[in-house]
Write a protein that binds this DNA or RNA. Structure first.
Length: 791
DNA sequence: AGCACGCCGACT
DNA sequence: GTCGGCGTGCTC
């Protein structure tokens, strides 16, 4: 008797364990069922998906059920990934099933369907077709009771392989000629088809054949029926880069600095050692070439490589670079691909058809079994942290996998996160420094403009004199400018000048943003929107005014002041459509516009030769959000944005507008001086007990009723305080920075700690204690073991 | 998560 | 007396 240990697809505390199933006779054969395969199992009255965790001879369970079916012939999770899931459960406090689902492309998560089968009839009623039909439900229920209708639970695998129909001759050439001659002249099309195959007997895609002969499929079908032609379905990959060719590139000669940096990396590859390198190199210092050459070495060893980049910089330029060097060895994984395309790229990895993956966060789970290197570019980017369960940081997973495979992990950045740089200082990571820019390009000159001074001088617009002058200058010279503003929409809030009433979202404690394009007020946290009122809802005054500046408003102002300038605006609102992002960038690259105006998303990876001016409209928007990393983010963003100007033959200039020019994150980004910034910021972190001096855990409690939230948060804070040593700091209960979202009140409790071996267990107990209230009432408790979003 | 079981109120 | 509300517990 063989027993399969299965993790079922029910993300709940009570089901976060193995369930035992009997292995049917047919699959008893040695090694057929393997850990990591997806199976369908009966669970209560329904059927659900599960993962095999192991096969055993023993069980303590008396009434065993049988495995229903297998969804995979080859395991989709390797033994290493199965173990990695267990590690994720411990470190991020998620359910095991949630960890495994996060490792696989969405197409591998099955869909459930409920069907009603009417006895003695072939008719099938789908649940989704009738679930909203109130009249039908009672009668169906009655018939189920009477035994006339049977309920069937169906598990649907969405992992559909794309297939194309192909045609080839079923008989040799001589016989084809015979058939050709014997066919009546009325069968013109059939004769044409046969003629084609006499000339070109090889297999051809049906679609292509039909186009070539400009006919329909009917003559083909006839010939197939006669046994003259053979049809077949061939599996093909949905290749997102099908219509593009990549120019093969050769390794570039390295500078002395690059050689110094790559040597220790190549050594660890050679010696099959695990080590973490922090490659700290300014923009343009040639980090990518080092990545490419290190990967090349790994491939020559017959091993595999994962290269992570932030979603936003996974541009065609980036892909070109990797496909150019490694050709078909590369799979690309990012959110711009369709579900099917993602599945196909993943399968190329699983089938060992590629040995390099370039992708965003989740590509860290690529199912390689012989990893030789993991690289994380722009290591400081917060998009490497997943903000839903499992709340993992790709950097942590990378280091864990690097240790599993005994291979190096490289973290690269021009502005490393304080956490990583501090570890490098303590020699936990090996620091590799690249100071020089390739071709000795000089850094752009940066000027900080005090907007308070502008105001005093009577300039009430959003553009300082200097900035406007420089944009005009570029316009005249036919060069391009980039303007950066980290706020979308038109205005940040709308207020009545008469009574001071601010228009807020009725469901969230946040002001509504005006979007001029559709004359609507929108909430950026829930999907609420309303028409702009013409009078104040409070006092009926007509003096409603917009405050704060968004990208839409800047666009409008630009049109007024510089009507001749062609502007491209890039933010979530203009790039939400698939491919829009690339299209806009391409247009700007082709010089179809003079000014690129955008949010965050334009800060990364853009490399346009004719951009010689970059303007940051308000450097402080980020500085004042309630997050201890706000200064770090500001510094990183400003450094990065400034690096965009004048990267080629033309010298660059940068203007940073701000209301707090004396803030060190702005001053030092202008130089730029990372090391000084690092020291100053570390002092603050130390004084206020923040990372990297302390670890953080954030518990967020939400419920539709305020008193309930306060009460529970209070209890939780007390419980946790009691469980931890007196060296840990527990803050809370306090209201979240946004105290209400989607009609739910939100409170939080923050834990700062250095060494608390019992913390994980205590938090687990806590979740356990509230699990019933969480599944039955409106209570939600989320725990983030390393928060990057405090909101 | 679903779903069944079971214990109390408002009805034919 | 029963129908049906949803609190409680289980799923190999």
């Amino acid at each position: 008797m063989k027993i399969a240990k299965v993790i079922v697809d029910v993300p709940a505390n009570q089901t976060d364990r193995y369930f035992d199933y009997l292995v049917p006779e047919e699959w008893m054969e040695e090694d057929f069922l393997q850990p990591g395969m997806r199976v369908v199992v009966p669970f209560g009255p329904r059927k659900i998906q599960g993962f095999i965790m192991g096969i055993s001879e023993h069980t303590d369970v008396k009434k065993l059920k049988c495995l229903d079916s297998v969804l995979d012939i080859t395991p989709v999770l390797t033994p290493e990934l199965l173990e990695l899931g267990i590690w994720l459960r411990e470190t991020t406090l998620c359910f095991l099933i949630t960890a495994y689902q996060a490792m696989l492309p969405a197409a591998m998560k099955v869909k459930y369907e409920k069907e009603f089968h009417i006895r003695n009839s072939k008719e099938i009623i789908l649940w989704k077709d009738i679930e909203n039909d109130k009249k039908l439900l009672p009668s169906i229920q009655k018939e189920i009771k009477n035994g006339n209708i049977e309920v069937i639970y169906r598990v649907k695998d969405r992992a559909k392989k794309k297939r194309v129909k192909t045609i080839q001759p079923a008989i040799p050439k001589e016989e084809l000629i015979e058939v050709y001659n014997s066919l009546a002249t009325t069968a013109m099309k059939q004769k044409e088809v046969i003629k084609h195959f006499i000339e070109q007997p090889q297999k051809i895609e049906l679609q292509v054949l039909l186009e070539d002969l400009s006919t329909t499929s009917s003559p083909i079908t006839t010939l197939v029926k006669k046994g003259i032609l053979l049809e077949h379905y061939d599996e093909v990959y949905r290749d997102p880069y099908e219509h593009r060719s990549f120019k093969r590139t050769e390794p570039l000669p390295l500078t002395e600095e690059q050689r110094n940096a790559i040597t220790p990396i190549l050594d660890t590859i050679e010696n099959k050692q695990h080590a973490v390198f922090l490659m700290y190199g300014v923009t343009g210092s040639g980090k990518t070439e080092i990545y490419l050459q290190a990967i090349d070495k790994v491939l020559k060893q017959g091993k595999e490589a994962i290269m992570l980049v932030p979603e936003i910089s996974l541009t065609p330029m980036m892909v070109d670079r990797f496909k150019g060097r490694f050709g078909d060895e590369v799979a690309v994984m990012h959110s711009g691909l369709s579900t099917g395309e993602k599945y196909d790229e993943w399968r190329k990895v699983q089938r060992k058809e590629v040995r390099v993956v370039v992708g965003a966060r989740s590509a860290i789970f690529a199912p390689f079994e012989n990893l030789g290197i993991i690289i994380i570019d722009e290591e400081h980017e917060t998009s490497y942290k997943q903000e839903e369960n499992p709340r993992y940081h790709a950097r942590d997973v990378a280091i864990k996998r690097g240790a599993n495979h005994n291979c190096p992990v490289i973290l690269g950045s021009a502005t490393p996160s304080l956490e990583s740089f501090a570890r490098a200082q303590k020699n936990v990571y090996q620091l590799l420094t690249l100071k020089g820019r390739i071709n000795a390009r000089s850094l752009p000159s940066v000027e900080i403009v005090d907007m308070r001074e502008e105001l005093r001088r009577g300039n009430r617009s959003m553009f300082s004199e200097v900035l406007l002058e420089k944009v005009k200058d570029r316009l005249e010279k036919g060069e391009q400018s980039v303007l950066f503003l980290n706020r979308r929409g038109f205005s940040t809030f709308v207020m009545c000048r008469n009574c001071g009433y601010v228009l807020n979202c009725p469901h969230c404690d946040i002001s509504l943003t005006y979007h001029k394009r559709d004359y609507k007020l929108k909430c950026h946290y829930c999907s609420y929107e309303e028409a702009l009122p013409s009078t104040c809802p409070e006092c009926n005054s007509e003096h409603i005014r917009f405050f704060g500046t968004g990208t839409q408003k800047v666009e409008e102002e630009l049109a007024k002041i510089l009507p001749e300038a062609r502007v491209i605006r890039m933010d979530v609102d203009t790039t939400s459509r698939k491919g829009a992002h690339e299209k806009l960038l391409h247009a700007f690259g082709q010089k179809q516009a003079d000014i690129l105006l955008g949010t965050q998303m334009i800060a990364k990876g853009l490399d346009f030769p004719d951009v010689t001016f970059v303007g940051v409209l308000t450097a402080d928007t980020m500085l004042h959000i309630p997050d201890f990393r706000s200064s770090e983010k500001t510094f990183q963003l400003l450094t990065q944005v400034s690096g965009r100007a004048g990267r080629h033959h033309l010298p660059g200039e940068v203007v940073i507008q701000t209301y707090s020019p004396e803030h060190f994150s702005i001053e030092l980004a202008a130089v730029p001086d990372y090391e000084t910034y690092y020291c100053r910021e570390m002092l603050l972190r130390k004084n206020f007990h923040y990372p990297p001096f302390y670890y953080l855990a954030l518990i967020t409690i939400s419920h539709p009723e305020l008193p309930k939230v306060v009460d529970i948060t209070e209890k939780i804070s007390k419980f946790i305080t009691a469980k931890l040593s007196n060296k840990a700091i527990v803050l809370g209960p306090v209201a979240s920075p946004i105290p209400r979202i989607k009609d739910r009140y939100r409170y939080q409790c923050m834990i700062k700690y250095k060494d608390e071996p019992n913390l994980g267990k205590s938090l687990q107990t806590l979740l356990h204690h509230y699990q019933q209230e969480m599944s039955r009432s409106e209570l939600q408790i989320s725990i983030d073991m390393n928060p990057y979003m405090m909101m």
